[in-house]
Design a protein around this nucleic acid. Sequence first.
DNA 1: TCATAAATACGAAATGTTTCGTAGCAAATA
DNA 2: TATTTGCTACGAAACATTTCGTATTTATGA
Lengths: 131, 131
Amino acid sequence: MKKPDQHRPTEAEMAILQILWETGPVSVRTVHETLYPTGDAGYTTTLKLMQIMVSKGLAKRNTEQRTHIYRANVQEKIAKQNLVTKLVNLAFKGSESQLVMQVLGNRNASPEELQQIKDMISLIESNQNNS
Amino acid sequence: MKKPDQHRPTEAEMAILQILWETGPVSVRTVHETLYPTGDAGYTTTLKLMQIMVSKGLAKRNTEQRTHIYRANVQEKIAKQNLVTKLVNLAFKGSESQLVMQVLGNRNASPEELQQIKDMISLIESNQNNS
DNA sequence: TCATAAATACGAAATGTTTCGTAGCAAATA
DNA sequence: TATTTGCTACGAAACATTTCGTATTTATGA
C-alpha cells in the first residue's frame, strides 16, 4: 500500500494553512484578503483552493452560517516536517543534518539564533543521556 | 523585473542534477539507468527532461559525438540553497533558524551529527568575532 | 419590495510538469 | 549490403495545480 499524500499540501495550500494555523478559524474572505491585500488573485481562486483542501482533508469547515468558517485539519508540525522530509530526500540524500549544515554554512545567522540552536542541541543531548 | 527561476529546478530535474553533480559529465543512458535501474520510466522521458534542462540553462551538453554528454550548469550549493530558501519562505516565515529548530526538534539526530553541527556553529561564531 | 452586494458551487481554462509514442538518422553487426 | 540497435528530435498526451468565469442563492439596505 502507498503512503497517503494527505499531509503534503501544495504551495498554495501551504500558504493558506499558515493563515489558518496563525489566526484560527476564519472565512474565505479573510484568508483571501490576508493573502492578496492588493487583489493579485480573484476571490473564487481562494475559495476553490479552500474547498479542495476540505475535500483532501487538509481543512474542515463549519457551514452552519452562510459564510463558511474554515480551520486547519492537519497539524502544523507534521505538515512542515513532511515538507522538510521531502526536501531532504530530494536534495540531501535523506540526511537532515546535511540540510542543517547547508543552512548554517550558507547564511548569517545572528548570535541569538545560534544560541537558540545550541540550547536546542543541549536539550536533545540531555534527553539522549537520560534514555 | 522578475527574479529568473533559472535556479529552481523541478523535482525530476533535481534528481538528474544530483547525478550530474556526483558523477560528472555523462550520457542520457547513464543517467537513465542510474535513476531507473528497474526501468520504471521510458528512456525518452529522461532524454526529454535533460533536453529541457539544457533549454532552461540547468545543464549543458557536448554534441560532438552522436551520444551527447551532459553536465550540470548550476552550482550544487546554489541550487540547493534556493530550494531551502523556497521552503523557508513557504513554511517558516523566512527564518532559517526556525527551520533548523524544527529539524532538530523533530528527529533523532545521532550524537555525531549533533557534534558536527556544534562544530559548525563554533566555526561561525569565531568568524563573527573576527570580523 | 427590488436592486445590489456577498457568498457558495462548479466546470473548465490556463499553466506547469512529466511521460511517452513515433519518426528519422547513424552506427554496429549479421 | 541489409538488418538491427541505439541515439536524438519533437509533438502531444497525461497529470497536477492554479486561476477564473458564470450561475445560483442568500442577505442587506435604499
